[in-house]
């Protein structure tokens, strides 16, 4: 009887070990994945998009300058909580580029590849995050996470406002894609804060 009980416990332990192993498997190489995704996405943007602003867009650029300091919000959020921040940033980038882009002449295939790559990373990161959160009772840490997401959302809200103001015009989109590149560069720099 005793032996059966011990064996039972052993089985339970083994099964639990197995499950924790499975659930954490895709999260072990998270930093490598994130770095590759960010670099690759940046590469897609750089190769297919304009890097210099057309001259007629300079006045629009002046209207956007006000949002420059808000990139610091992104930096703060990445420093506070890199995984959550990246999860939110990637989602916001996909959402932003899914708006009305009829004015731009961007290569649709490259844009879709860029978005789907970010989306795949969002899904994987989301699974890792929810596995981590399971152990977390709503707590100061939970509030902290909310704050991190809010910072990111505030930054992209400014971008949305700018696009709406300029009626999703060509210049507005050119400025926004340059801004998104800056944001991804920051993500790339701060990804190494994530512990594997």
């Amino acid at each position: 009887m005793n032996a059966i009980l011990t064996q039972g416990w052993l089985h339970i332990c083994l099964v639990m070990l197995f499950f924790s192993e499975v659930s954490s498997q895709s999260c072990t190489s998270l930093r490598v994945q994130l770095t590759t995704t960010t670099k690759n996405s940046l590469g897609l943007l750089k190769s297919k998009m304009r890097t210099n602003l057309p001259l007629q867009c300079l006045s629009d650029m002046r209207d956007f300058v006000a949002t420059q300091e808000i990139l610091k919000e992104i930096q703060t959020s990445l420093e506070e909580n890199p995984k959550v921040a990246i999860h939110e940033i990637f989602q916001q980038i996909i959402r932003t580029f899914n708006q009305n882009r009829t004015e731009t002449a961007w290569d649709e295939n490259s844009m879709a590849a860029f978005q789907t790559r970010l989306h795949q990373q969002v899904q994987h990161l989301g699974r890792c995050l929810s596995a981590e959160m399971e152990n977390d009772i709503p707590s100061p840490r939970g509030q902290n996470i909310q704050l991190t997401r809010l910072r990111v959302k505030r930054y992209f809200q400014r971008i949305d406002n700018f696009l709406n103001e300029k009626q999703h015009g060509l210049c507005a989109w050119e400025i926004v894609q340059i801004e998104v590149k800056r944001c991804l560069l920051l993500v790339d720099q701060l990804t190494n804060r994530i512990q594997n």
């Binding site: 996909i94 899914n98 879709a112 978005q115 789907t116 989306h119 899904q123």
Partner: peptide
């Protein structure tokens, strides 16, 4: 279909 289109369109 790209999966992100479901979510963001």
């Amino acid at each position: 279909l790209y999966a992100f289109r479901r979510q963001y369109s």
